[in-house]
Design a protein around this nucleic acid. Structure first.
Lengths: 116, 116
DNA sequence: TATAGTACTTTCCTAAAGGAAAGTGGAATC
DNA sequence: GATTCCACTTTCCTTTAGGAAAGTACTATA
């Protein structure tokens, strides 16, 4: 039996792209990964390195990223206790995505400012 | 004067990445670009090629993408009138992002299913 | 004793995203 | 005359994202 669809299938690309988007969705997740990648480890440092993020949102996104095994929360039993967030090696696999978005964002901004 | 920040700056990456995310945000925009890239042009074809998308959402996202000059809406004055959506050349610049997301999505899914 | 820092949580609120279902208006087809 | 196709729109509703501001529990420091 022949298939009856009049449209062209694109599921082999749409589905994995959607899977990726479901993990790194929202305004903040990649920014947090980038900040950790730059070396920030403390809650307050991460917060200050990302302009506009509130502590509530940061706390929630950190939990999400931990669940996806992209970062880990490390408790250092000093006095006082220190809490560090570190990227897991798995977070490195996001580098191509971050790079592609960075390049595109830069040229897009150029385009917008150069042709009004 | 020295700077007083205790955190590491990552704005040179965070800002362009956020710019890009602001354009391709949501669950559907990249899927639509992919569908058009695969050759779908008609509203109903696009809708059927992307499982789960509703006509309301599709109509809204198409308008967004047109405003960002990533696609164009073409009216063909036949009887009856035909409406075609075509990707602009600028949409091709998203290919590296789509590719990176596709690759990541595929390996992520493998990872999830192979290690429970 | 007072102030400051750390890592959050809590409350309250608004806006945006998005799903479900039905409807619309024309033209074509049965 | 009725149904179907196309490209949407409209309405209603729920969920999610996210901002603002204040609070908390602990410790350290002046």
């Amino acid at each position: 039996m022949a298939n009856k669809m009049g449209y062209l299938s694109c599921l082999d690309t749409v589905k994995p792209v959607r899977d990726a988007i479901d993990v790194i969705n929202g305004k903040w997740k990649l920014a947090i990964i980038i900040s950790l990648g730059a070396g920030n480890e403390r809650f307050t440092d991460i917060q200050e390195s990302i302009p506009g993020i509130s502590p509530k949102v940061l706390a929630k996104e950190l939990k999400d990223l931990e669940q996806h095994q992209l970062i880990k929360r490390v408790v250092i039993e000093d006095y006082p206790v220190k809490i560090l967030y570190k990227p897991e090696p798995y977070a490195d696999t996001l580098t191509p995505i971050i790079q592609a978005l960075k390049v595109w964002g830069l040229t897009h901004r150029e385009r917008i400012f150069s042709k009004p």
